[in-house]
Design a protein around this nucleic acid. Structure first.
Length: 601
RNA sequence: GGCUUUGUAGCUUAACUGGAUAGAGCACCUGAUUACGAAUCAGGAGGUUAGGGGUUCGAAUCCCUUCAGAGUCACCA
């Protein structure tokens, strides 16, 4: 019946058993055969475990909700062994499931060392998850952190739900942005390298992107004072023209340009690699825009012949989507160089050729909602029916207390700097609490890394991805309450108990449960359902909030109940088992968020 | 301005997709450590779910409308 490997959840299983009984009851009482039953968890302030909403049944019973509920409740307590009690509040029938039923469910969960996780079968659906996808002209910032953490976590959750997952990113390694850094580096850098300066490669390249912008603004200002219009000045500033020329040379494969491009990109990749490593994210395959944009161009030419696209007199290529409620969108510039959309078309097609995926997720900020609507529509018009399997995981921007991050105002929060601050903070807090005296310095450093980065990850993932979020540095360094370290701490405490336990663990079937024990068991049994739920809604926040709730419940239990010093061995053994499974869920749940939980802290 | 999207306690947020008295954390106030780790726990105060209207047994959730914020409408990415 109940099999923990299965995604069968406790609720479903109780519901299934009950459904049958209730259908019997209803057909006997009210002479109906087909009913849709609506269950929900009983709210904490009422007695009971599972609740049947009876309002919809009153249509058949032709009696008040209260009477209908009581009649069904009576029937169930008499005819089932699982239900031993019930109460009725308005139209809600609250049913109590007996202790031995809970104990046996917990036992099957404990026996299953992959509880909550579905096996990935060889023929499982193939899910591509794209995330990160940086430009190579500057280092990663706070926005990328949200992106990376989300993408990684969603990928892990999908795996746990039984999908075959492939993590990919598209590296935007070509285009006008990188040309800007290159031009500025040639003009101002005096051959600076990461080695000669000791600056991390991505930061060095970013520095020249900023230099470009400075110079550009100066030039624009100068031209305007000479009588140019704003628009004219922006288009004719000498350094801007140089960047444009360089892009054309790049597309013409000019040797010097390509060599410089490769050199600077290689600095950036080294830098990214470090950042990714510290953030704990990885990829199964990288795509490079420089490889896919040509395919995009080919497809565009093909689409021109098939009249999906059209050419304007100046040579630029467009698609008219006004009949689909969208606008005209440019696909190729008049000078023939490609835009973002061009390569996105190419990349999507390449990926489908490579993997023949059944689903592809793009983890990209909601500022690009329109872009993806257009992209999917274009793919559809080009005849790729798998366009409907593409999904834009659109997440909200990260704001600072001061408002939006703006590079112009220097309010961009750098990823490397932020991670370092979090780790230092973890260290300071631990030291001021006088913790970890017995760890050597290597162990301590690993711990601070886990706590600091874990705090950051949890902070960003506990919010619904769709929502815009506020990153308050002050609040992020708070390690109490709904935070990563709070959860890690609970895990460490349980581990401490497990180290001290001497008994062999086994569970007595006839134990009497306390209210808190029953609550804990119920939460534990929820885990598989929540993994599925967060997978189907692409939301790590569901897991994060669930683990927090579990941890709160455990802490409350821990405070009120002696575990190792209970008077009977079988009680100790049960309580330790319960704590152990709680630790398991904490560890697995947090691993889905990319957060590791320490043995001690 | 058109389209998209968001609005829940002072702040950060949850609500099983239409269900019960809207649930937490932070901050604030009061208590708990000779028990397995106090980075903890127990309790208090804090809400017209932006405003108004509608749909129905029942609305934070669905529809209409007003207000406020954000995004987007580029030969940018």
């Amino acid at each position: 019946m109940y099999d923990g490997r299965n995604i069968f959840t406790f609720e479903k299983m109780i519901e299934q058993i009950l459904s049958q009984y209730i259908i019997d009851a209803v057909s006997e009482l009210y002479k109906i055969n087909e009913v849709k039953l609506q269950f929900q968890k009983t709210r904490k302030d009422f007695e009971g475990d599972i609740t049947l909403v009876v309002f919809p049944l009153t249509v058949y019973s032709k009696k008040s909700p209260e009477v209908t509920a009581s009649e069904i409740g009576d029937y169930l307590t008499i005819n089932t062994k699982e239900i031993n009690n019930f109460n009725v509040v308005k139209g809600f029938l609250n049913l109590s499931v007996n202790d031995s039923c809970w104990v046996s469910l917990l036992t099957t969960a404990i026996k299953n060392n992959k509880f909550g996780f579905s096996d990935v079968k060889p023929d499982a659906e193939k899910y591509l998850v794209e995330y990160c996808s940086p430009n190579t002209n500057k280092p990663l910032h706070l926005g990328h952190i949200r992106n990376n953490l989300l993408g990684y976590s969603v990928a892990e959750i999908l795996k746990a739900s039984g999908k075959n997952v492939i993590k990919v990113q598209i590296i935007n390694d070509r285009g006008i942005h990188i040309c800007k850094s290159m031009v500025a580096w040639l003009e101002f850098a005096n051959n600076e390298t990461p080695e000669s300066t000791g600056i991390k490669g991505d930061h060095l390249v970013g520095k020249y992107y900023v230099e470009f912008d400075k110079k550009y603004k100066d030039e624009v200002k100068g031209l305007i004072s000479k009588g140019y219009s704003q628009n004219q000045a922006e288009k004719e500033a000498p350094i801007f023209l140089k960047a444009q020329e360089m892009l054309i040379k790049w597309e013409d494969k000019d040797e010097n340009v390509i060599a410089l491009w490769q050199k600077m990109n290689s600095w950036v990749y080294k830098g990214f690699e470090q950042t990714h490593k510290r953030l704990g994210v990885d990829f199964d395959k990288n795509y490079y825009e420089s490889d896919t944009y040509l395919l995009g161009k080919d497809i565009v030419n093909e689409g021109l012949l098939n009249k999906v696209f059209f050419k304007k007199p100046d040579g630029s290529v467009w698609i008219d989507l006004s009949s689909d409620g969208l606008d005209e969108k440019i696909i190729l510039r008049s000078d023939g160089t490609s835009v973002y959309m061009t390569q996105d078309i190419g990349t999507a097609i390449k990926r489908h050729q490579d993997f023949n995926f059944s689903h592809m997720t793009y983890t990209v900020g909601n500022e690009q909602d329109y872009h993806f609507k257009v992209l999917f529509k274009i793919l559809e018009k080009l005849g790729y029916s798998w366009s409907r399997d593409c999904y834009h995981l659109s997440y909200g921007m990260v704001d600072l207390p001061t408002g939006k991050m703006k590079s112009r105002e220097g309010t961009v929060v750098d990823a490397d700097v932020l991670m370092e601050e979090m780790v230092v903070n973890a260290k300071n807090i631990a030291e001021s609490l006088g913790k970890n005296q017995d760890l050597n310095s290597d162990e301590a450093n690993i711990l601070y890394e886990n706590v600091g980065i874990g705090a950051l990850k949890y902070f960003m993932l506990k919010v619904d991805p769709k929502k815009r979020m506020l990153f308050d540095p002050k609040e992020s360094i708070d390690f109490n309450g709904n935070t990563g370290p709070f959860i890690q701490y609970t895990h460490a405490r349980i581990k401490s108990i497990l180290r001290k336990n001497k008994l062999e663990l086994k569970i007595d079937k006839d134990l009497k449960l306390s209210l808190k024990e029953k609550e804990l068991i119920k939460l534990i049994l929820d885990f598989p359902k929540l993994v599925q739920e967060s997978a189907s809604s692409f939301s790590p926040a569901i897991i994060a909030n669930y683990v927090f709730e579990l941890v709160k419940e455990f802490n409350s239990y821990y405070q009120s109940t002696t575990i190792l010093k209970a008077d009977k061995d079988e009680v100790i053994s049960f309580r330790v088992s319960l704590a152990k499974k709680t630790a398991y869920i904490i560890e697995k749940g947090m691993s889905l968020l990319g957060v590791s939980v320490p043995e001690r802290m």
